[in-house]
């Protein structure tokens, strides 16, 4: 199908974006468009105005400063996948990137767009949660920062307020010895995950693990498995952790499978992750 009629604007400074967002009607930001344009084509959304932010300067690119990696909201998935800085400092993102759709979509879709959309089955929101990322949000009033744990508030819902634009994501480098693990189950390559796990695992010298386990595809938003984290940090084994996961997750069924199946699959991913972390050479 074809998109419905709408007006289009392509501002070149943020202040113009704020002006446009203040206008009447259903005003939407257009970043990579890899989720928004399909929803237009399928007539699932009908904005009156699209504000194309692709030509705004300063919203793209990856840079490291003071132990923090700052990723501009307009940075494309493919740039993250091919970034040497990301591979070295935030390997979890490098592991997740190939799972996002397909090459041509990764060339165009943006990091910030995926996070602002907050699809509960998407990879980046879960990675942000596992890494304790900070969202940098701009508005006419200035900038504010929102922790990933407070940012995802529901199904396609975030802490972004009217008139605000997500401009960057800041992620502190994990401590030395911390390792990343990413896996997801999908029926076909590039599909949204049925269930996925993004994990950043701190490890002490005695081998004790403190894992931040962010599951996605398990509810209306990505979920940090805190009870399971405490069991593993306390020395619990795979079976203990898998049993505890039922206290962290209460997946609802969707078009893919029943909620009980999702919980089972999440336990499978958790078991695989723990087994892989134990046998890794760098452990």
């Amino acid at each position: 199908m074809k998109a419905p009629d709408f007006a289009y604007a392509r501002p070149t400074v943020l202040s113009e974006v704020f002006d446009l967002l203040d206008g009447d009607g259903d005003v939407r930001l257009l970043a990579g468009g890899q989720s928004l344009v399909p929803s237009l084509n399928m007539r699932l959304s009908a904005p009156s105005l699209l504000v194309d932010i692709n030509r705004l300067p300063g919203l793209s690119g990856i840079e490291a400063r003071d132990g923090v990696v700052r990723i501009g909201a307009l940075t494309r998935h493919g740039e993250i996948a091919r970034s040497a800085l990301i591979a070295e400092r935030l390997p979890l993102l490098a592991m997740a990137a190939p799972h996002i759709a397909h090459a041509a979509i990764r060339n165009r879709g943006t990091f910030g767009g995926s996070i602002a959309l907050a699809d509960p089955a998407a990879e980046w929101p879960a990675c942000c949660l596992a890494l304790g990322a900070t969202m940098v949000v701009a508005s006419r009033a200035g900038e504010r920062r929102v922790a990933a744990g407070d940012f995802f508030t529901g199904l396609f819902a975030t802490a972004l307020r009217r008139g605000e634009v997500l401009v960057a994501i800041e992620i502190a480098s994990p401590p030395a010895g911390s390792v990343a693990h990413f896996s997801e189950l999908a029926r076909r390559r590039g599909d949204y995950a049925i269930v996925g796990l993004a994990a950043q695992v701190a490890r002490a010298e005695d081998g004790a693990m403190d894992p931040r386990l962010a599951f996605f595809g398990v509810g209306d938003r990505p979920v940090l498995a805190e009870a399971t984290r405490r069991v593993i940090a306390g020395g619990g084994g795979i079976a203990d952790a898998q049993a505890t996961l039922g206290r962290d997750l209460a997946p609802t069924g969707d078009a893919e499978c029943a909620g009980a199946t999702k919980l089972h699959l999440a336990r499978v991913l958790l078991g695989r992750a723990m087994a892989a972390l134990r046998t890794r050479g760098d452990a």
Binding site: A3, Y8, R10, G33, V37, N41, D52, A104, R108
Partner: peptide, 11 residues
């Protein structure tokens, strides 16, 4: 390489 159906001509 990009999807021609997911990009607007004006873009």
């Amino acid at each position: 390489a990009v999807r021609g159906c997911l990009m607007l001509a004006v873009q």
